[in-house]
């Protein structure tokens, strides 16, 4: 009799202990990463994230170019991915013939299954040559955009533009999936009411569907942003890894993740490692805030469905 109770207690304790691993891990990550980055954070203060110096020999560090590159590449990715993701989600939820829905959704979802390093490989060997030889000359010379700050400078291929495009492809399935989900959560009655009032199909979407789904879609976009900010391998392989801030999308750059990936194994002195750890801590903090924001927005619309 008491063995039964003992068994139950052992089970409950075991399961609870396993669940406690989750908070423990998060706590460990925060503590360990911040602690390892503390020498750099302590030395340079919050200005660490706004300084541009990166001198491993003299131990002078600032993460501004990486922060800048992280933000620019992610925003570029959003600008490129959002219309395609939302458009394809609208297609799937509103217009696609039944037989086409499954295959197209499957193909888009499959993008999320491709490992980052494979995107990087494709980026280096296919995307970058194409950008260097076709897209960049076209933008700079044919469209005469070469004199605008955004598209100036030599076309190396390895660039912020390449990083933005790769990231756009990688986050597209996430935005598309969330958007599809919230569009499906829009009640039928909303659509029918609009149609009954004589709206065209597009007007129905614009006036009835999108307003209802808006904050969910924004949540999906921000979820994609969270992915883009932390994405490492593919970006490291195509961004050029240069500690510089440049307005031109043709220039190579850095993101926080790619700077860590690129320099960590070469960092020999403690302050260099600490600076990279501090970059990691900053990245952790940014993605945390962004993911929380996304979660909140999505849960507001879709409730239990996607939260």
């Amino acid at each position: 009799m008491n063995t039964a109770d003992a068994g139950d207690r052992a089970y409950r304790v075991t399961v609870a202990a396993m669940a406690m691993v989750v908070p423990l891990l998060l706590l460990l990550v925060s503590v360990e990463v911040v602690r390892a980055g503390w020498p750099a954070l302590h030395r340079f203060g919050i200005a660490f994230f706004t300084r541009s110096a990166w001198d491993a020999v003299n131990g002078d560090f600032g993460a501004a170019p990486a922060v800048y590159g992280t933000i620019v590449s992610s925003i570029l990715a959003l600008v490129l991915a959002t219309p395609l993701a939302v458009g394809s989600a609208l297609f799937l939820s509103e217009f696609a013939p039944r037989w086409l829905q499954q295959p197209v959704a499957f193909l888009v979802d499959l993008l999320a299954a491709i490992p980052s390093v494979v995107y990087g490989l494709w980026g280096i060997l296919v995307l970058i040559p194409w950008l260097r030889e076709t897209v960049m000359p076209f933008l700079a010379d044919t469209l005469k955009l070469g004199n605008t700050p955004l598209f100036s400078g030599p076309a190396y291929g390895n660039s912020m533009l390449a990083a933005g495009i790769i990231l756009a492809i990688m986050i597209l399935p996430y935005i598309a999936a969330v958007t599809r989900e919230v569009l499906l959560a829009v009640p039928r009655s909303q659509r029918e009411a609009a149609l009954a009032l004589g709206a065209t199909r597009w007007e129905m979407i614009r006036d009835a569907v999108l307003p209802h789904a808006r904050s969910g879609i924004i949540g999906g976009i921000i979820l994609g942003l969270g992915r883009a900010l932390g994405e490492t391998m593919a970006v490291t392989m195509v961004i050029g890894n240069t500690h510089e801030i440049s307005a031109s999308l043709f220039s190579p750059g850095y993101t926080m993740a790619s700077q860590i990936a690129n320099e960590f194994s070469e960092a020999t002195n403690d302050m260099h490692i600490s600076a990279l750890m501090a970059v990691g801590a900053g990245l952790f903090a940014i993605t945390l805030v962004v993911n929380l924001l996304a979660r909140w927005l999505v849960s507001r619309v879709a409730g239990e469905r996607t939260a």
Binding site: E32, S116, A261, M277
Partner: peptide, 17 residues
């Protein structure tokens, strides 16, 4: 969910540390 959103590179340096 927070742990799930942790960038993989941060997991990497954490495990290294």
């Amino acid at each position: 969910d927070v742990l799930n959103g942790l960038p993989s590179i941060v997991v990497g340096i954490f495990a290294w540390q």
